[in-house]
Design a protein around this nucleic acid. Sequence first.
DNA 1: CCAAATTGTTTTAAGCCTAAAATGTTTCCC
DNA 2: GGGAAACATTTTAGGCTTAAAACAATTTGG
Lengths: 172, 172
Amino acid sequence: MPAVSDCIEMLDSETKAVETPEDHAEELRLWLRLLTCTTLIEGEVRGRLRQRFDVTLPRFDLMAQLDKAPDGMTLSDVSKRMMVSNGNVTGLVERLVESGHLDRRTSETDRRVQVIRLTKLGRAEFRRMAAEHETWIADLFADLTPKDVRELMRLLAKTKTSAQKSAGRRRP
Amino acid sequence: MPAVSDCIEMLDSETKAVETPEDHAEELRLWLRLLTCTTLIEGEVRGRLRQRFDVTLPRFDLMAQLDKAPDGMTLSDVSKRMMVSNGNVTGLVERLVESGHLDRRTSETDRRVQVIRLTKLGRAEFRRMAAEHETWIADLFADLTPKDVRELMRLLAKTKTSAQKSAGRRRP
DNA sequence: CCAAATTGTTTTAAGCCTAAAATGTTTCCC
DNA sequence: GGGAAACATTTTAGGCTTAAAACAATTTGG
């Protein structure tokens, strides 16, 4: 049975009749916990990539995107997929072309567009790193049962949809 | 009933007898989804903070830590809580002292230690921002039921513990 | 056709972030 | 007491990141 305060809150949010400042402490705590988990795991992966392969996480992420696209991607595609700014990708690509991991060429049909691909070296190095990376992730999530994983996937999918809708309401 | 492949995997991971390369695609997908959710929400919050209050997310986060500690915190404390490097905090604090939001003084009992606090201005501005921030978070998570929120909290707590253990195994 | 809007990328300016080395201070313990 | 270890912070060097402005090329609608 829900607490009295929960009932009041539910009435408020459904009827939209009252303007009492609602309590969203639970959502706030959820957000902080989500952020903590991500920061923790991300930091761990970053450190391991640096120690084992002397590569940064953003470079690894970019190569991961390209590994899934044998025909290459445009910078815009990469920017959208990685959810980072355009200018960010420009610099990242510059350094990876410099180190011989990426190949970049201007599209034949649209001279605005730059198409980038992994070089043979880039692909080989990425595959080597990705194999080990996968075991790190498995270890980081080792305490979760297969059921936990499924349930988290489901709830995070719902979270993603919710956040996208909210973001859409701001920028329609 | 679990699929055959699941049984084999379970046997492998329990007996540790076989060295076949296990499949951790599910964990990998979970990690990517977790990262997507965080990036999405973080970007949205960052943008709103900038538009509404002309403040960066790291500054807001630092002020949030200090708001919970009326007696102030040391830079190390802040660094641990925010899970960022020491040097990072130094610069962040510098700019917030400069803008009049923070007060910084050397500890009387230990001259290595710097104690920082919110100024009156800093606290007032933070409270104003935090109130609105809470509604953004509520909106971003609006599709989740109270039960979803509880369940996510539980699973993320488990995830955090798991990741901490894994990180501990690397750096004991 | 052609001006205006749109699209893809780069540049700019500022700030964030890390790892590692350096600096100053305190504690430990012989 | 005094040197070694530990601790708190800053500095350094390099890279990441963003938002906004600038530039270039294409598409669109009169």
